[in-house]
Design a protein around this nucleic acid. Structure first.
Lengths: 146, 146
DNA sequence: TATTGTTATACTCTATAACTATA
DNA sequence: TATAGTTATAGAGTATAACAATA
């Protein structure tokens, strides 16, 4: 068995390298954690959402989301308000400062993503796109079964 | 921007799900860490190698490799001996117990990898194979440049 | 009694660098 | 003085569950 050819290993290396190349922007340059960056990006397209919804959209659990949102609020980037109709819920939304930061950050990470994808032609991108979905589905099936 | 369509996010989710589906075997069933599993798999195909070589083949740094190898030795799975020609070097190799464990473990993870890849036809696998390499190359370029 | 979100805590990983022994 | 490997340690991330407020 060749570890270098083992799909899980190759995916781990790639995801790690890609993640680091993005973190160079959102972490080193904007001092956001990965979770904070994910929430910011999601809230940028989502308007007002419940905390649980924001967590679900970013694949964070409620605890990770809670901590990241608290930190974003402390920096004045997002607002958290109790939902008046059910005060157990918290409604989250970007503040202008968050929007401004996102307007700076987003083009930079999208440019990096574009640079990565330039390695592939249209047909290859289409195959990759479907392959990632299919593999994810199967990996989750394996994971559910233990 | 849609986080769900963002390549780095999708790769992270996939690599994480795939990694968990493999850890279900090597970790939960055989009580190996990811680093230990990587070293075991590599030593299975490599014979006697220097510690630094083993580290390089598994993309671990010398500290991670040192710890994982110590733990594998403590369990009687690998042997570490000083190199008589240069006693700063450590030569590592699998012991029979390590080989036996690998013979049990390897078919299980390879079966899981095969199940994942069954989601794709031959042409798709070929494209994925090249795409992963090309993306890794570009991600590393980005990472080197900061 | 159940649900949402928060807090506490312990555990694992990671990163940096100091240290040991050999050369 | 340089190298291979080990050890120490601090920081970040992760996982579980106890907890408070509300329903």
């Amino acid at each position: 068995m060749q570890l270098q050819q083992f799909l899980p290993y190759r995916l781990a290396l790639l995801a790690d390298a890609v993640s680091r190349s993005m973190a160079a922007v959102y972490h080193q340059r904007f001092e956001l954690s990965r979770d904070e960056w994910r929430l910011l990006a999601t809230l940028g397209g989502a308007g007002r959402v419940q905390a649980a919804e924001a967590a679900q959209l970013t694949t964070l659990d409620k605890m990770q989301a809670s901590r990241a949102l608290r930190s974003l609020q402390a920096r004045g980037l997002v607002e958290r308000q109790p939902d008046e109709r059910d005060r157990r819920h918290v409604i989250v939304q970007l503040l202008p400062a968050g929007r401004a930061l996102l307007r700076q950050l987003q083009p930079m990470v999208l440019a990096r993503e574009a640079y990565l994808l330039e390695a592939l032609d249209e047909a290859e991108r289409a195959v990759l796109d479907r392959a990632l979905d299919k593999l994810l589905q199967r990996a989750r099936t394996l994971h559910r079964q233990g």
